[in-house]
Design a protein around this nucleic acid. Structure first.
Length: 784
DNA sequence: GAGCACTGC
């Protein structure tokens, strides 16, 4: 029947340190902890699956040379912090490596640390390091434009996170462990009971808590990139810890480039004081990262004359195993033509043959599918099957889980099933691979595909299509079965197919428009963006397209240097075209900045603020309320009306959202963004402080609406289409046929010309966020 | 008539 392979690796039975292997038998017998409440990190390649991969080459296993026999003399650390957390911290796989980590960083500047989920790296590494001598703030002389000045360098460790929640929850956790308060109050106490001041802080968008005395600061990647704009040498910091680098966001890729430049440069901007860099990954697939930080020759910004004075001693490497139960991987014996059928059969087999519970708890099923439609079909089929089950078999409770579901519906998937004699079957998209952890899962069914968004630079549009996943992703999915007890993972594809999958997913920078990345580099002083060190450089053509686009937007001058307008644009937390729209709205002949801010806030707050309505009945009900928001000019003016009504609503905003089926969470986020952008505009002298809410609602006149749309054309002149004689829309740039997406209020309508902010290929070429415009406006917008 | 997942001074 199906091919079975028992995986050998056990739950964290040994740790590789340098070229040694240390047994961890001491606490192996303990039940692995559940997902740490502190760590939002749910990603990471499970240990059990590593046996699937070929043994890492010796070079990868250790470069931590200089191993000493004993480091006791240097060990300055009586463990600091709140003693009540000490036993928990001591049980973490990372705890026994703290001397090792300290020793490496005393002698070297760059360390790559691989530690799987649950190893404790995010919480412990900063605590191991902040008392180090090299971490103290120093007063040094630096030369700025020929003038010598005294500046402070160092004193703080930054830890970057891809997501805000991760940064804030980790900061809370570490602050508690350290026995200090995030508020900077003198509430905490150290081991001796003495009062200590703030030690841990965080800084994320909309939320900053950096108490006096902060030595450990959790930040989002975007935040540190933004700090780089003001402080190119990161003088505030002694060390930067880059966490979750395996997620390979565009921000972390850019950050890595800047860090590489600082580390391998001449350090003159830091008064000769080195910046320590710890790169942390939850997956062992780190060859490209190692290679990137080991080779100074790709670095172009630091002059070659200084290189011999500052030899880079390469990157040090340390791997700490996580803890994970073994998972059996079962591949399909031959290629499967019908995934839905195979899914149903696997569910049937598991449900009838496998016990409902064991000593580790529930034994629920998690299936990874590609999207909402597939999930809903599968749900229907499984429920039909479940209705035929005899009374002796457990009942089945199918829970769909995808991003478009309401928060309450998503929450349901995480709850234990209600009936006692019932098995939960969660049908999820990729949301369950990295973003959330579903408890109780012991069986994983993996369809082997996922929908991915990919930017097509040549067409200036993106596509969203189901594609085969990577091996790393398959391993990740498998690992979801082994978090609470031994599990099984059924892959609905053959082992040959698995071997043929690419090792890792394409990093985001190769999948998205690099427009923002290029502007980021330009604004931070990178003249030749093609020479900037990146782990995975995008195609030259993509970069070229972005340079042209930025030039068209007025962010770059004819010679490619950044303009004053470009410098203003990078300060806004929106993409370059939106920033251009903001600047256009400031122009006295337009003068509609507040309105444009409202619209952009709504759009960038997340998914569509208008929730999808399933049933026809409710739809009719909702339409009655929504009618007053709709504008015939299209989606943008409709967003504006929605925001203005919401801001004017004085009594019950929750009820207001509910009756109109508007996403309250996004609406709140939109208000946050609106406040932030307004603040930036005031700071930049683009407007006077706006009157506070609630303001009475006054609709934009048709003339005002036209002016607003003309502002948007300044950023989106290329994203326009004209109505053709055959009633289709043909893009003015590229002459492609586009259809108005059903989510747009202009769907099915015929207008002379349209402007659209998004252009996505799924079933066909779709234009989203659409507005009706006049054809003459397009040429007008392209004039300078 | 249709919707992978994240995210930013």
């Amino acid at each position: 029947m199906s091919k079975k392979r028992k995986l050998e690796a056990q739950a964290g039975d040994q740790v590789k340190v340098g070229n040694k292997t240390i047994s961890l038998e001491g606490y192996l017998s303990k039940k692995p902890r559940k997902e740490q409440a502190t760590s939002n990190n749910t990603s990471g390649v499970p240990n059990s699956d590593q046996a699937l991969q070929t043994q890492a080459p010796p070079a990868l296993q250790s470069e931590a040379k200089d191993e000493q026999k004993s480091d006791k003399n240097q060990d300055t650390t009586k463990p600091a912090g709140d003693p009540q957390f000490l036993p928990i911290r001591q049980a973490l796989p990372l705890w026994t490596h703290q001397d090792e980590i300290r020793r490496i960083l005393r002698q070297h500047d760059v360390l790559l640390l691989v530690g799987e989920t649950g190893s404790g790296k995010s919480t412990q590494v900063p605590q191991f390091l902040y008392q180090e001598k090299w971490c103290q703030r120093r007063r040094v002389k630096v030369q700025t434009n020929g003038v010598t000045e005294q500046v402070n360098v160092g004193g703080v460790i930054a830890i970057t996170q891809p997501r805000r929640v991760a940064a804030t929850t980790l900061a809370h956790r570490v602050s508690r462990e350290a026995g200090t308060s995030l508020n900077g109050q003198r509430g905490g106490s150290d081991a001796k009971g003495a009062v200590v001041k703030g030690l841990v802080g965080y800084s994320v968008r909309f939320d900053h808590r950096v108490p006096p005395g902060t030595k450990i600061k959790f930040v989002t990647e975007g935040m540190l990139l933004q700090e780089l704009l003001r402080d190119p040498h990161l003088r505030q910091y002694s060390a930067i810890i880059v966490d979750e680098i395996h997620e390979r966001s565009v921000d972390v890729d850019l950050l890595s480039g800047f860090l590489k430049q600082i580390v391998s440069g001449d350090k003159a901007g830091r008064g000769g004081i080195p910046l320590k860099v710890v790169i942390m990954s939850a997956t062992a697939n780190v060859e490209s990262i190692k290679h990137f930080f080991s080779n100074p020759d790709t670095n172009t910004a630091s002059s070659s004359s200084t290189r011999e004075e500052n030899p880079t001693d390469g990157i040090q490497f340390l791997q700490v195993e996580g803890r994970q139960f073994p998972v059996d991987v079962i591949h399909a014996p031959k290629p499967i033509p019908d995934i839905q059928e195979a899914l149903l059969k696997t569910v049937f087999k598991l449900h009838t043959e496998e016990p409902l519970t064991d000593k580790h708890g529930r034994r629920d099923i998690l299936a990874f599918l590609t999207g909402q439609e597939e999930i809903e079909t599968a749900q229907r089929l499984i429920e039909e099957y479940a209705a035929t089950l005899g009374p002796k078999l457990p009942k089945i409770n199918v829970m769909p889980l995808f991003g478009q579901l309401s928060m309450e519906a998503q929450y349901e998937a995480f709850q234990p099933v209600k009936g006692a004699f019932t098995r939960k079957i969660v049908l999820a998209t990729n949301i369950a691979e990295t973003s959330v952890t579903v408890p109780g899962v012991r069986y994983v069914i993996d369809c082997g595909k996922a929908k991915v968004k990919q930017f097509r630079p040549r067409l200036g549009m993106e596509s969203l299509l189901a594609k085969p996943i990577s091996q790393s992703s398959a391993i990740q999915r498998t690992g979801r079965a082994g978090r609470e007890g031994p599990g099984k993972s059924y892959r609905l594809y053959t082992e040959e197919t698995f071997q043929g999958l690419k090792k890792t997913d394409l990093p985001e920078i190769l999948r998205t428009d690099v427009l923002g990345a290029v502007l980021t580099m330009k604004a931070r002083g990178i003249e030749d963006v093609l020479a900037f060190p990146l782990m995975d450089p995008p195609e030259v053509e993509s970069v070229g397209k972005s340079l042209l686009h930025l030039h068209l937007l007025g962010a770059l001058a004819d010679d490619g240097s950044i303009t004053d307008m470009g410098r203003k644009m990078v300060m806004f937390p929106v993409t370059a075209p939106y920033a251009r729209v903001l600047l256009a709205a400031t122009d006295p002949k337009h003068d509609c900045l507040l309105e444009v801010i409202d619209i952009i806030s709504c759009i960038t707050a997340g998914d569509d603020i208008f929730l999808q309505v399933q049933s026809e009945e409710i739809k009719e009900e909702v339409e009655v309320y929504r009618k007053e928001l709709f504008r015939r000019e299209g989606d943008l003016l409709t967003y504006l009306t929605a925001m203005q009504h919401y801001a004017a609503e004085n009594t019950d905003r929750a009820q207001w959202c509910k009756s109109r089926k508007i996403n309250m969470r996004n609406m709140k986020q939109a208000l946050n963004i609106r406040k932030q952008i307004r603040g930036l505009c005031v700071r930049e002298g683009m407007m006077e402080p706006a009157p506070t809410d609630p303001q009475p609602f006054s609709p934009a006149s048709p003339d005002e609406a036209a002016v607003i749309l003309k502002c948007f054309l300044k950023g989106f002149a290329l994203k326009t289409a004209m109505l053709a004689p055959d009633s289709s829309y043909v893009t003015s740039h590229g002459k492609h046929v586009v259809a108005i997406h059903p989510s747009s209020m202009l769907h099915g309508q015929k207008k002379e010309a349209i402007m659209f902010l998004e252009h996505v290929y799924t079933q066909k070429n779709y234009a989203k966020k659409v507005s009706a415009i006049q054809a003459s406006w397009i040429a007008e917008a392209l004039e300078h």
